[in-house]
């Protein structure tokens, strides 16, 4: 495999930081054409660039749209690299697939958006189902995407019961053991997570990334 030039490295990092998906895609193809190792592009360029962007967001040096655009650019670049990895018969570079959504009847989606973006910027494949997601929609998506983790956000005491219903649905159809299920959002805490039989809870987006990483390792 050929070395990636310093210039290409710098340009791709910059395109990702700027959230310029077209440019990031073009540079990624250029790297592959030049014989770069796709895994090295992901680990050595995309993950560090996006980690930096995530940090800037936590410090309010950039805002949610910039964070999400960077996440989008990273997604596009990663998809191309994943294709190349699959074609060469190597194992996938993605840390795992997370299906995420805000539960049924809840419109509070900002926290979920932040978690979703940080997870994808740390190398997870994220399938975001949006807000007002019914238990059956979580189940369908988890099966279809062959997810590793199902993540549910809920901000209200009157919507969090839907997290319990979702977990129960997974159990009733005999699919619970296939997935790690995690919960979060303002109305949720560790005690609730334990009570409904979730595999994990995290209080903020950075902790959610750590939680997903640790769950993937043990599974």
């Amino acid at each position: 495999m050929a070395e990636i030039t310093e210039q290409l490295r710098a340009e791709l990092s910059e395109a990702l930081r700027q959230g310029d998906a077209d440019k990031a895609e073009a540079l990624t193809r250029q790297a592959l054409d030049g014989g770069a190792d796709p895994l090295e592009v992901i680990q050595g360029i995309i993950v560090p660039a996006l980690t930096e962007v995530g940090q800037l967001f936590q410090e309010f040096k950039i805002f949610l749209p910039e964070l999400m655009l960077a996440g989008e650019a990273a997604k596009r670049a990663t998809a191309i690299l994943e294709e190349a990895i699959a074609a060469s018969g190597q194992a996938s570079a993605s840390l795992g697939t997370v299906v995420i959504g805000t539960v049924e009847n809840d419109v509070h989606d900002i926290g979920k958006n932040i978690v979703s973006t940080l997870l994808s910027s740390h190398g997870f494949k994220v399938v975001d189902l949006g807000r007002d997601v019914a238990p059956s929609a979580f189940l369908d998506a988890a099966l279809k995407e062959q997810a590793d983790i199902v993540a549910m956000s809920s901000l209200m005491t009157t919507t969090r019961p839907s997290q319990r219903s979702t977990i129960n649905l997974f159990k009733e159809v005999g699919e619970r053991e296939k997935f790690k299920i995690i919960v979060g959002g303002g109305s949720v805490n560790q005690q609730w997570a334990d009570e409904i039989g979730a595999d994990g809870y995290a209080a903020d987006a950075a902790a959610a990334v750590e939680l997903c990483k640790s769950l993937i390792q043990v599974s």
């Binding site: 049924e104 009847n105 809840d106 209200m156 005491t157 009157t158 919507t159 019961p161 839907s162």
Partner: peptide, 21 residues
């Protein structure tokens, strides 16, 4: 404020429970 439970049951939005709540 809002209520954590209704008649000791878990409340649920967009359901008969919301009427009771």
């Amino acid at each position: 404020g809002s209520l954590e439970t209704v008649y000791g049951r878990e409340g649920r939005s967009h359901s008969p429970w919301e009427v009771l709540l």
